[in-house]
Design a binder for these strands. Structure first.
Length: 324
DNA sequence: AAGGTATCCAACCGCGGACGC
DNA sequence: CGCGTCCGCGGTTGGATACCT
């Protein structure tokens, strides 16, 4: 038994929206709101569309303050850092870029950014474009490690449009992010359970500092990988990685893919088999955005712990830290 | 110029979670 | 607690367009 369809596909219109439909939907929602029920909305508006289609059209195209295309380098960096930190949680990533939709970011990543960073880049090693990207990362990061480009320091809100400064300042998005990653909040809205063994209830200020330190840490951390694959489909395997060789070893000895990093397998490890260098990864050709994997910094009793890639079950890992 | 291929992106699909009854 | 409904999300599709040979 499959799931009942949300609407009758024989009676609803599908495909591209006409300007008339756009106008109807926009005008209705601006005057009346969505009414909290997308399924019922098309009837009220007078559209022969599925409610989900209306919702998508509104959220991705019609609602105010939507920006399409023309992603800035700043936005590229935010998307890259968040993607590598949390994977394809496009809605969370989009929450950090208020004028962008998750669909837009997802499309941008899949069609351009991913290739820019991991794909075509390698084939053009030594080409002008490749050099530009590498030098960009280095010059953005003149006193820090050259492998990871400077990331935005989030103590100041990104100057998004007028009243859209809901970014880091109000912590809503961070809270949402942390909740998604497995945390929970006590009733007084303090972040008490996110960090295991923490003696500190984490208030909004602490949370801001935590995020700020995370970003600062990413920018300044030495190459020191601690990839805990208990968070991935690779069971009970821990790697304290001193560098790419360890990472490669881990990949070679685990046929499963690491959740969220599948594209690495497609773009890099397929290339590997075709290489004439005895199967060694061409780490030099890897784009500077890629490594070291950005650590999520978490507070613990000793200060900061680096290098834990938060994936599914990340909080469990934090509650049961690696044996020293 | 024509045909083939690659790229882009709006829209669709189906699943999982939240919520109300 | 179970069930049904709706919402939101991430993955995928397919048409339009650009680019290449």
């Amino acid at each position: 038994m499959g799931r009942a369809p949300c609407c009758d596909k024989n009676t609803v219109k599908r495909g591209p929206w006409s300007p008339e439909e756009d106008a109807k939907l926009k005008s209705y929602i601006e005057q009346n709101g969505t009414g909290g029920n997308w399924i019922a909305l098309p009837k009220k508006v007078g559209l022969k569309r599925c409610g989900k289609s209306c919702r998508l059209r509104w959220l991705n195209y019609l609602r105010p303050n939507i920006k399409h295309g023309g992603f800035s380098e700043e936005e590229d960096r935010i998307i890259c850092s968040l993607y590598i930190s949390i994977g394809s949680r496009w809605s969370i990533i989009a929450a950090q870029l208020p004028e962008r939709t998750d669909n837009d970011i997802k499309n941008y990543w899949n069609t351009k950014l991913k290739k820019k960073l991991f794909g075509k880049q390698r084939q053009k090693q030594g080409s002008k474009k490749g050099k530009e990207i590498k030098s960009m990362a280095v010059s953005n990061n003149n006193n820090q490690n050259p492998y990871w480009p400077e990331l935005p320091i989030m103590q100041q809100p990104i100057p998004y449009s007028n009243n859209e400064q809901k970014f880091i300042n109000d912590h809503t998005s961070i809270r949402k992010l942390l909740i998604k990653l497995g945390g929970n909040f006590s009733e007084d809205d303090q972040l008490t359970n996110i960090v295991p063994n923490s003696q500190y209830p984490i208030d909004n200020l602490s949370m801001q500092l935590m995020y700020q330190n995370h970003i600062n840490f990413i920018s300044s951390s030495p190459i020191n990988y601690v990839l805990n694959t208990t968070l991935s489909p690779l069971p009970n395997t821990k790697y304290n990685m001193d560098g790419p060789a360890e990472f490669e070893h881990m990949i070679n000895n685990n046929p499963q893919k690491i959740d969220g990093l599948e594209f690495l397998y497609e773009d890099i490890f397929i290339d590997k088999s075709a290489s004439t260098s005895g199967g060694n990864l061409d780490w030099e050709a890897m784009d500077p955005y890629l490594f070291p994997l950005p650590p999520i910094v978490t507070l613990n009793d000793g200060g900061f712990q680096q290098g834990v890639i938060l994936q599914e079950g990340a909080l469990d890992e934090l509650r049961y830290p690696m044996a020293q």
